[in-house]
């Protein structure tokens, strides 16, 4: 290895600081500060507008009012209970949708007959809004947990399926040639090329699926639920309890953030080779 190449590699790995890196250090801190302060500023503006009656607190509430409602909700364990109910439904629904999505997506990507057989069915059923199927799901699965889990599952399923299939189909043919030229069997090709090659797209599908799961949990808990964050929102609506509604929205936002963080974390472990 020559010295220049070694050094280049160190730069690529971030061990050696280049000129460009040294200067804007201060700018970097300022930018971080700005990202941190802007939401706070928004809250302050909201509070002031509410305080002076420029926005109607009966409709828009105010940060301090929401905070006053939030603390007892949290300390009484009520919020935690509803959050855990929803989290359980999301995780179960996510798994029930994602696992068959990955399996079928891989099969459709790898075996043309499977793709030929299933693609028209997927193409026709995918565009149906999942909310439109909910009444049917309720009739079939009843009012219990199963219908809620299935609603989420079906939304996750399609996104994961389509992304997984695309992931397999988009693998560079060069990699297939390499596997073939070394005499890889079908099974060896699947495990050493097809699956790892499709992983980035599979994860893109899982992330999209997670977004849909959060969307569907609110809808699923609208009907025939007695617990959950979505249920809290609809309950607050019935009671015209704006503060409670905002508290539930905060929980949903946090859930979305945590789930995407967890998926990113898992992705980092499963796909350590991805250039980030």
């Amino acid at each position: 290895m020559n010295a220049v190449e070694g050094q280049l590699n160190q730069i690529a790995k971030g061990k050696v600081k280049t000129c460009e890196e040294r200067r804007p250090h201060l700018t970097g801190i300022l930018l971080h500060l700005l990202s941190f302060l802007s939401p706070l500023l928004l809250l302050v503006i909201w509070e002031i507008l509410a305080k002076y009656g420029i926005v109607d607190v009966r409709l828009f509430s105010s940060p301090s009012r929401i905070f006053k409602t939030f603390l007892p909700l949290l300390s009484s364990g009520e919020l935690v209970y509803h959050t855990l109910m929803s989290v359980q439904r999301i995780i179960l629904g996510f798994l029930v949708g994602a696992i068959p999505g990955v399996v079928l997506g891989l099969s459709m990507g790898l075996f043309p007959p499977v793709k030929a057989m299933l693609e028209p069915i997927v193409a026709v059923t995918f565009p149906i809004p999942k909310l439109a199927i909910m009444p049917l799901i309720l009739i079939i699965f009843g009012l219990g947990e199963a219908s809620k889990i299935f609603t989420i599952a079906i939304g996750v399923f399609y996104l994961v399926l389509i992304n997984t299939m695309a992931g397999v189909l988009n693998i560079d043919p060069l990699y297939m040639d390499v596997a073939k030229s070394f005499g890889a069997s079908r099974l060896q090709f699947y495990t050493t090329v097809a699956l790892p090659g499709a992983l980035p797209m599979i994860f893109a599908g899982l992330k999209l699926g997670m977004g849909t799961a959060l969307l569907l949990i609110v809808a699923a808990e609208l009907s025939a639920a007695r617990a959950g964050v979505g249920w809290m929102i609809w309950r607050s609506y019935d009671m015209f309890d704006i503060e409670r509604m905002f508290c539930s929205l905060i929980v949903l936002a946090l859930l979305g953030y945590i789930f995407s963080y967890v998926l990113d974390f898992i992705e980092r472990i499963v796909i350590p080779w991805k250039n980030r």
Partner: peptide
């Protein structure tokens, strides 16, 4: 075969790439 272009598997470490033919 040594192919033209970027034929090294990005999901395998350097050593795993070199081992590939033997693993097969």
């Amino acid at each position: 075969v040594v192919f033209q272009g970027d034929a090294v598997f990005p999901w395998m470490k350097v050593i795993e790439n070199v081992e590939y033919g033997l693993r097969i």
